[in-house]
Amino acid sequence: MEPIMAVAIGTLYAAAIFMILRRSIVKLVIGLILLSNAANLLIFTSAGMTRGAPPLIPEGLSAPVGAVADPLPQAVVLTAIVIAFGVLAFAVVLIRRAYEIVKADDLDKMKETDT
């Protein structure tokens, strides 16, 4: 499964970078979403992919039965998903405010610092 995931992650990154390189700020937003998802998937798959063995311990036992998926990347990605949402909200609102003030959706017209 891993090689397929590798290709999928690569595609996600390529799509994200392509969108971030656009001049339209709305496309930039889409690019940001793609990029954060790509990064999350990258971290998630970094420890390998395990089917049907969630890192949970059955009741009454002190250790999981058999090998389970690595819980560490999962914990890292879990917070990353929520933070990505927070950052996305921030970025989206920032872009919206910038658009209101500059009245342009072209990033090239936003290059002056003193608006």
Partner: peptide, 24 residues
């Protein structure tokens, strides 16, 4: 926000596809 705008020239777009593709 405004609709999607197409602001880049085809050359720019091909350049960006190459860059993004190599990153992928």
């Amino acid at each position: 926000l405004p609709r999607f705008a197409s602001l880049s020239t085809p050359v720019e777009r091909i350049r960006d596809i190459i860059v993004a593709g190599s990153a992928g």
